[in-house]
Design a protein around this nucleic acid. Structure first.
Length: 469
DNA sequence: GGAACTCGCCAC
DNA sequence: AAACGTGGCGAGTTCC
């Protein structure tokens, strides 16, 4: 048990991984060229209308005037920042790493200028058109794109992808998702299947720290880590995940506290994010009753929290600070101790070594030293599964092929008659066989799947339960 | 005219 | 005392 892999094992994974990824790359993904062109034209038309509208505004006219003889470029954030922060004298809500006033979406929204909405809309449309649709067309050969996957560039020994990047195609934003993913198809007569490891990074962290509380959260299907945190953060006594308003708070806790904390963030950043769950709240102001989402019983979250004594961001921040302390000093005490031990070990030996045998050298911050092994190892589980599934598909001469990978998921181009067989294979390799190969996998691994119909695009996937078949 | 940089934004 | 991890890429910009 608990036998770590050697550096030779790591090399083997890298080598076989590169070969398997190259096969996926060669396979590629069909794109609808006609759709891409039409959609690009539609967006161009939209943008030109929006730009025309913007140019009518006094905001734009003043901006132009302020530049004198210099040409104005709507796409230049340097010019926008100069106008907003130097000419108009707005205080930048945030600075960039180099110390200039930021013009990102977050900052611009806070300035509360109506024309800004148009600028943000244009930005978003250009991103979709130029990075994705144009990018697909640039890289396509005979109607197929062949995203490239590398294993030697990321410092964590994760993978990277390029030409085009397969790993950052819009998903969260539904409008962008639809436009971009509707361009991507399986081979004719085939269907797309995406299988992902659920909570892989959290589980990979357990391989290292073996924290009993976190293990219980993973092993006990009735427990709910994010729900518990939502309950604690927002002081909800009768928390019920099946209630939509409570599930919203659960997501807020998950994305605004739990995950950032795991990456090394702190309450000072978490509190303002969490505070947005019940409405925008400018610094130094106080909450009023009547603000925020409804939480049932004819109450809303604003009132609820005010009644618990949180009238200002400051008092809420203190509350989140207490929760952070409880989180690391009590709830996940063992995890916390591992972080300390691991950091000490890095300081002593000058490198860290993953369970998979990979070594990270070089200067690292505290957060780096504890994040790298988790992130790398989580990906290596996916990579091992990728290699193993690919080998079997090839060996058995199946028509199904793997076409890509997104850190904790595998994307396949499935021959419909092989669907059941492929699903059984994935289930077996990803949740069972891997535990025989790597005995330090000390918690069950779990997968979810999404399936598209025959000849349907990547936009059409729907949740697919293996065991109900 | 290309390399290298910043910034913003997409994914996990 | 300090304070969010990993990537790729387009556009603008600056430098050589």
């Amino acid at each position: 048990m608990d036998i770590k892999s050697t550096q030779a094992d790591a090399y083997k994974l890298l080598h076989q991984g590169t070969l398997a990824l190259a096969r996926a790359e060669r396979q590629g993904l069909r794109i609808d060229r006609k759709y891409c062109t039409q959609e690009q034209n539609k967006i161009t038309e939209l943008i030109s209308n929006l730009e025309g509208e913007l140019k009518q505004s006094s905001f734009y006219k003043e901006w132009t005037r302020s530049r004198g003889r210099k040409k104005l470029n709507i796409d230049s954030n340097a010019q926008l920042g100069e106008y907003l922060y130097e000419v108009c004298g707005h205080t930048p809500p945030k600075l960039t790493p180099s110390g200039l006033g930021s013009t990102d979406k977050e900052s611009l929204k806070q300035l509360d200028i109506p024309e800004i909405q148009t600028i943000l809309r244009i930005r978003k449309l250009k991103k979709i058109r130029d990075t994705y649709l144009k990018g697909f067309m640039k890289e396509q050969i005979n109607g197929f794109i062949h995203p490239h996957f590398k294993l030697h560039t990321a410092t964590t020994y994760r993978s990277s992808s390029s030409s085009p990047n397969f790993q950052n195609i819009p998903k969260r934003d539904k409008e962008a998702q639809k436009i971009c993913r509707s361009a991507l198809y399986p081979r004719r007569g085939h269907q797309l299947l995406e299988v992902d490891y659920s909570g892989m990074e959290v589980r990979a962290s357990i391989f290292y720290h073996n924290d009993p509380t976190m293990k219980k959260y993973i092993n006990d299907p009735d427990s709910d880590m994010h729900g518990d945190m939502a309950q604690q953060i927002f002081k909800i006594d009768d928390f019920d995940r099946s209630r939509p308003e409570h599930d919203t708070l659960r997501s807020a806790a998950k994305n605004g506290f739990v995950f950032p904390q795991f990456y090394g963030d702190y309450y000072g950043n978490n509190a303002p994010t969490l505070a947005c769950s019940w409405g925008e709240m400018p610094e130094n102001k106080r909450w009023e009753s009547g603000q925020g989402i409804s939480i049932g019983d004819e109450k809303n979250l604003g009132e609820h929290l005010v009644s618990h004594g949180f009238r200002s961001l400051k008092s809420f921040t203190n509350h989140v600070q207490d929760i952070e302390e409880d989180f690391w000093e009590r709830r996940f005490e063992v995890y916390n101790q591992w972080k300390k031990d691991w950091w000490r070990k890095y300081q002593n030996q000058g490198y860290i070594e993953m369970l998979t045998g990979f070594r990270c050298h070089g200067p690292m911050s505290k957060n780096d030293a504890t994040n790298y092994p988790v992130q790398g190892t989580a990906f290596h589980c996916l990579l091992w599964s990728f290699i193993t599934v690919d080998k079997i598909l090839t060996k058995k001469n199946m028509k199904t092929r793997i076409i890509g990978q997104v850190h904790d998921s595998i994307v396949l181009d499935v021959y419909p008659k092989e669907l059941d067989k492929v699903c059984r294979l994935l289930e077996y390799v990803m949740t069972k066989k891997i535990r025989k190969h790597w005995p330090w996998v000390n918690v069950p691994l779990d997968i979810d799947a999404d399936l598209g119909g025959v000849d349907e695009s990547w936009n059409e996937l729907e949740e697919y339960k293996f065991d109900e078949k």
